[in-house]
Amino acid sequence: MTNAEQIQWEEARSAVYGFFSQAFIRGPSRQFLGALISDEGTANLREIFPDAAYRQELAQVRLDAQEGRLTLEGAVLDFEALFRVPGPRYLSPYESVYRSQTASGWGCLCGPETAAVERLYLKEGLGPNAEFSELPDHVGVELEFMAFLCLKAVEAMHAGDAAAAQEYHHQQYCFFMEHVGPWVRLLAERLASQAQTSLYRFLGNFLNLFLEMEGNLHFRPGGEQPVGRATDASLQQGVGQ
């Protein structure tokens, strides 16, 4: 890829991480749902992956919304049950709950992973915004941090600072391998299976697909795969497998 293409690629990945971050932190709004199922929104989303199942689920979201099976109220209730209210469908969107789990059940909130990611954020000068009161290992925060690291790489590439860009790629690799990778796909699978609306089923599968692609392209165990050198073949492999 050319440098410009690499920059675009990095920006695109950042956009996807950011999209999921907001979807899992804020829950659905009328604006979000409206944009998602609009002609333009659906068309753009459709282009992201050529996978047939993916496109079919996306179409189902649009159809459900058009035919009244997917309402804002229903989406909000689904979001609350999945991400906020500790009932039977609750996903517990925190890394330490997944990572420190034992044979007898889920792990605890505020485990060592919570402190570990908080240290990484603080190292980058990142603190929670005033109105934000979630834990630092919430899935939305970790995905936002990935988005941040992608954009920092973009900044470095714009500035022609290859060393800095490499450093941010390295940080992406470390954060993905140590935090996002080990648990977010599991959460995505549970999201897809436990959601009651087509919207969150779609988002669960979409996230799973995206992380699979990321793993195949950039974050393989045993060694870093520089972003700029990812082959188109590996992109194809990561899609729809």
Binding site: W9, E11, A15, G18, A23, F32, L45, I48, E134, G140
Partner: peptide, 19 residues
């Protein structure tokens, strides 16, 4: 196409982040 769709997605969710 991935880039095109993803960047449009970014615009869709363009509100302030959490940090």
């Amino acid at each position: 196409k991935f880039i095109q769709g993803a960047l449009a997605l970014g615009a869709l969710a363009a509100t302030a982040g959490c940090m």
